[in-house]
């Protein structure tokens, strides 16, 4: 079709989900990631990670108390959020998410209680219960996006795994920062457990690679052929459009490639300062990723 075509009249539509939802996804991700880290020692028995178990579970609970506040504030009718607790729609992903969002923090609190009581058997049981809940509480965030069939950027089965991997990435990054802060400022000997930090850094580096891989697969699929499709335009929004700086520089370069090199290059990887810097960059990058995916998915108009 080479004929000229211009729009004489059309109406604009708002972007329904915004920064608050992106922030909410970010917080649940951090929480789920921290929880998984805490189970490394207390469920799977990696003694090396024992020092972070309690910190991680406290973080997971605090962040998960903050997270739903963003959801509630994002509602047009915040005072009606109680409706969601007793009106159940079994076909709605948000309804299931509500159950997850209620059960997961409760389980975290019980798990943490037994952990602080040094009751290893019960800790293990509730840790095992918590893993599917943690996967659920963040996996459903991915499903919320991937089940929207009309938004090309969201409607992919890669979305839940991508969200889960980025959750672990952000959880590990935050945990590194918190462990360093705690051991540097809040312990008697002010000595940082270097071994622990570096092994966390290794986890961070390789989950980061998985994260970048999933993003790459997704974009390759969206852009490979059919340049007239909405999927292509949605992906191009990230690569060339208004979100390009946030995506290419914020998410991929500063939040992905740079921290990976910092964490794996032999000349830089043996410094606590560099690991700290990499973790901060990763946290910023994952936040950029949440914003890119939540906001960017809605930016191609439907009509």
């Amino acid at each position: 079709m080479v004929e000229e075509l211009i729009v004489l009249y059309n109406v604009p539509h708002e972007l329904p989900l915004g920064i608050l939802i992106a922030t909410y996804f970010y917080y649940t991700g951090v929480s789920a990631g921290s929880f998984v880290l805490s189970t490394l020692a207390y469920v799977f028995g990696y003694e090396k990670y024992k020092p972070i178990g309690k910190l991680a579970i406290v973080m997971a609970v605090i962040v998960l108390i903050l997270a739903p506040l963003h959801l509630i504030l994002d509602l047009a009718q915040p005072q009606r959020f109680v409706h969601i607790l007793y009106m159940f729609n079994a076909r709605s992903m948000i309804s299931w998410g509500t159950i997850m969002l209620t059960a997961y923090p409760l389980n975290c609190v019980i798990y943490g209680y037994f952990m602080f009581k040094e009751n290893m058997k019960m800790t293990r049981i509730f840790g095992l219960i918590g893993i599917p809940l943690a996967v659920g509480v963040h996996g459903y965030c991915g499903f919320i996006l991937s089940l929207v069939a009309i938004r090309s950027l969201w409607h992919t089965a890669l979305m839940p795994p991508l969200f889960l991997v980025s959750a672990v990435v952000s959880g590990v990054a935050l945990m590194i920062l918190i462990v360093i802060t705690k051991q540097r400022f809040f312990t008697l000997d002010k000595k940082i457990n270097v071994d622990l930090i570096f092994s966390l850094g290794k986890i961070l580096a390789w989950t980061l690679v998985l994260d970048l891989f999933l993003v790459g697969v997704d974009l390759l699929e969206l852009t490979y052929v059919y340049s007239r499709t909405e999927a292509y335009d949605a992906a191009m929004l990230l690569i060339k459009g208004p979100l390009a700086p946030l995506f290419l520089i914020g998410e991929i370069f500063l939040g992905g490639i740079v921290p990976f090199i910092l964490l794996t290059h032999p000349r830089t990887s043996s410094s606590i300062k560099v690991v700290t810097l990499a973790s901060v960059l990763v946290l910023i990058g994952i936040y950029a990723m949440r914003v890119n995916w939540v906001v960017g998915g809605q930016m191609t108009p439907l009509s």
Partner: peptide
């Protein structure tokens, strides 16, 4: 009963909804 979560606006293929 509507709490204004805006998810229906995001899923509507026809852009029919608004707050």
């Amino acid at each position: 009963m509507c709490i204004g979560c805006r998810y229906c606006i995001a899923v509507c293929p026809y852009d029919s909804r608004f707050i």
